[in-house]
Simulated scan of single mutants.
Amino acid sequence: MLTNVYFVRHAHSTYTPDELNRPLSEIGKAYAEKITQILKKENIDYFISSPYKRAVQTVGGAAHFFSKEVIIENGFKERKLSESPVENFDIAITKVWAEPTFSWEGGESNIIAQKRGVETTLKILEKYEGNNIAIGTHGNLMVLIMNYFDEKYGFNFWRELDMPDIYKLTFDGTTLKEVNRIWKREET
Rank of each mutant, 00 (worst) to 15 (best):
residue 130 G to Q: 08
residue 115 K to F: 11
residue 149 F to T: 01
residue 130 G to W: 12
residue 141 L to R: 02
residue 126 E to T: 14
residue 148 Y to S: 09
residue 135 I to C: 02
residue 149 F to S: 03
residue 134 A to V: 05
residue 139 G to P: 10
residue 127 K to E: 15
residue 123 K to S: 14
residue 148 Y to Q: 05
residue 121 T to R: 05
residue 140 N to G: 13
residue 140 N to L: 14
residue 117 G to D: 07
residue 122 L to Y: 14
residue 138 H to P: 08
residue 116 R to M: 03
residue 139 G to W: 00
residue 131 N to R: 14
residue 116 R to S: 11
residue 139 G to E: 15
residue 120 T to R: 04
residue 137 T to V: 05
residue 142 M to D: 06
residue 125 L to I: 04
residue 117 G to N: 06
residue 148 Y to L: 11
residue 134 A to H: 04
residue 145 I to T: 01
residue 136 G to H: 08
residue 135 I to L: 03
residue 118 V to G: 00
residue 129 E to A: 15
residue 115 K to D: 05
residue 129 E to V: 14
residue 144 L to K: 04
residue 141 L to K: 02
residue 115 K to L: 11
residue 144 L to F: 01
residue 130 G to A: 11
residue 139 G to M: 09
residue 129 E to W: 08
residue 124 I to Y: 04
residue 145 I to S: 00
residue 143 V to F: 01
residue 116 R to D: 02
residue 132 N to T: 07
residue 148 Y to K: 12
residue 124 I to R: 06
residue 122 L to Q: 09
residue 141 L to V: 07
residue 116 R to E: 08
residue 118 V to Q: 03
residue 118 V to D: 04
residue 138 H to S: 07
residue 127 K to D: 12
residue 118 V to M: 10
residue 131 N to E: 11
residue 124 I to A: 06
residue 124 I to C: 03
residue 129 E to S: 12
residue 150 D to Q: 13
residue 115 K to P: 00
residue 141 L to M: 04
residue 146 M to P: 00
residue 136 G to I: 00
residue 126 E to D: 14
residue 144 L to T: 03
residue 117 G to C: 05
residue 136 G to S: 12
residue 142 M to S: 00
residue 131 N to Y: 15
residue 147 N to A: 12
residue 145 I to R: 00
residue 124 I to G: 06
residue 123 K to V: 13
residue 138 H to K: 08
residue 120 T to Q: 07
residue 144 L to W: 01
residue 142 M to W: 08
residue 117 G to R: 05
residue 124 I to L: 04
residue 117 G to Y: 01
residue 120 T to F: 05
residue 140 N to W: 12
residue 139 G to C: 09
residue 122 L to W: 06
residue 148 Y to N: 02
residue 150 D to T: 06
residue 142 M to Y: 09
residue 149 F to Q: 00
residue 142 M to T: 04
residue 133 I to Q: 03
residue 118 V to K: 02
residue 143 V to K: 01
residue 142 M to R: 02
residue 119 E to L: 13
residue 123 K to L: 08
residue 139 G to D: 06
residue 146 M to K: 07
residue 125 L to Y: 05
residue 141 L to E: 05
residue 120 T to N: 10
residue 144 L to N: 02
residue 122 L to E: 14
residue 131 N to V: 13
residue 150 D to C: 08
residue 144 L to M: 14
residue 133 I to H: 10
residue 136 G to M: 09
residue 135 I to W: 09
residue 117 G to W: 03
residue 146 M to G: 01
residue 135 I to E: 04
residue 120 T to L: 06
residue 131 N to H: 12
residue 138 H to Y: 05
residue 145 I to Q: 08
residue 150 D to R: 13
residue 132 N to F: 15
residue 124 I to F: 11
residue 130 G to F: 14
residue 129 E to G: 11
residue 146 M to N: 02
residue 134 A to Y: 12
residue 125 L to T: 02
residue 121 T to Q: 08
residue 141 L to T: 03
residue 120 T to M: 10
residue 147 N to R: 08
residue 115 K to H: 12
residue 128 Y to V: 06
residue 115 K to M: 07
residue 129 E to P: 04
residue 116 R to F: 06
residue 127 K to R: 15
residue 150 D to Y: 12
residue 117 G to H: 02
residue 116 R to H: 13
residue 122 L to R: 03
residue 127 K to I: 06
residue 138 H to V: 02
